[in-house]
Amino acid sequence: SGDADVLGMPGWLKTIFLDVGLGMIIFTCQLGQLTTQVNASHCMIDFINNYFALFTLYVAMTIEFSGVMHSSYLIQNILSALSGKPIQTNEEPKTGFTFAFFWGRVLMSLAILGFSLAVIVAALFQGKTMMVVKYPGVPNGASVFLFFLLCSIVGMLEGMQIAFFAVAKLPADERGTSLFGRKTCDLLFKGNGQNLPGFMIGRQLTVVASFFIVASITSMNIQPGSGDNIFGVSDGAQAFLNLGFHAAVVATIIASITWQLAASAFPIAFLNNPVTYILLCFALFLEWTGLCAGAWV
């Protein structure tokens, strides 16, 4: 994009908005997420009173029924046992075929998750992702570290959202039991409470930016038929892996659902984590910059 003329922008500005991707990040965050979330929060019935919302629901239910993400239920059960909090459900206890079908999908999901993670790590160590194309100066080992770091940051932000809403109903003296827990709550709930929605905006911007980078890290750079397929899989399987569904599975379970479940089980522990306070300050700073201030409209 450095040689293309885009609205007469100077080279450094094109690098920031196009090569780095700031333009797409802001566009996705502002129009694709924050605006719809704000509208849905104020017009709940109207937002779902259309066929597209029904279609989206059916797609989500189909994906859940497939069992691809069922390993998250295992994580939920483990965290429930560790926290001593029973899982609230209206479902009847699973028995017979229902029990076998459920846990069979859990095992299948674990196998898919393990294979997907192995593909990502192997491709990163072998330099077979788009990371070497977009950021050729980054060593392969650093790419692996960056992948897990970004997954952890996204996971923390996902968990913080759950933890903040969980403790919002608690008395002020019960929200934090450590220095950073109290500092986090003081900053989050001070004044007229504007910092909580401000965090949501900064959080969303950080999550979107992180996922754009993760997409660059995990996208396969292997041409089927070149004889360089990951793990020696067939060309058809390599073409399927190039679509990136394996990365979506890993990101959804490891960088999102697991952290949300952990925060739901241990909200106070999340608040007491100093990383939570640091990320809260960073999210509020991003909101202060005004990059996504249009969400307030």
Rank of each mutant, 00 (worst) to 15 (best):
F164L: 10
Q76C: 05
V106S: 08
G232Y: 11
I78S: 01
V132P: 02
A237G: 01
A166Q: 11
D19K: 11
G232Q: 06
I45H: 01
F164G: 02
F17V: 07
A209H: 03
K134C: 00
S116M: 01
S256I: 11
K183R: 14
S143K: 03
C151P: 01
F52C: 00
E91N: 10
W296S: 04
L82A: 13
S109C: 03
G21F: 04
I87S: 02
N39S: 03
A122S: 15
A293I: 08
L279E: 11
G227V: 04
N140S: 13
T98P: 00
G176N: 07
G67I: 07
F145W: 09
P139Q: 04
G191K: 14
G176C: 05
E287G: 00
A163T: 05
L150S: 03
A248V: 15
V208F: 04
P171N: 05
G198C: 02
C43A: 07
V207L: 10
C185E: 12
I217G: 02
V297Q: 12
G198R: 08
I253Y: 06
F17D: 00
F285A: 14
T89E: 10
Q223M: 14
W288M: 09
D235M: 04
D235R: 03
Q223D: 08
K128S: 08
N49I: 00
S178L: 02
A263Y: 07
D173I: 06
G67F: 09
G294K: 07
M200Y: 11
L179D: 10
A166S: 14
G290Q: 09
N90Q: 11
C185W: 01
M69R: 01
V20P: 00
S143Y: 01
Y135F: 13
G104Y: 12
A60N: 07
T184P: 03
K128E: 13
S71P: 00
N273F: 06
L280Q: 04
P274R: 03
D19R: 10
S256W: 06
V249H: 08
T184V: 08
V59S: 03
M160G: 02
C151H: 06
I268R: 10
L286R: 01
P274Y: 02
G104T: 12
V275S: 06
N273H: 03
G137A: 08
A237R: 03
G227Y: 05
I253C: 10
P197E: 10
P267V: 06
H246V: 04
P139V: 12
A295Q: 11
T184R: 03
Q30C: 08
R105V: 00
D235I: 09
Q161I: 02
V249D: 05
P197I: 12
G198N: 07
D235V: 08
V68S: 05
L79A: 06
F125A: 12
P136G: 08
N242C: 12
K183H: 07
Q126R: 13
N50Q: 06
V38D: 05
F164D: 08
H70N: 11
I153F: 14
F270C: 05
S226W: 07
Q223L: 13
Q161M: 12
F27C: 09
F240V: 15
K94W: 12
F55T: 14
M24E: 13
W296N: 11
L241Q: 06
I45N: 01
N272H: 05
V38C: 01
S219D: 12
N272M: 03
W12K: 02
K85H: 12
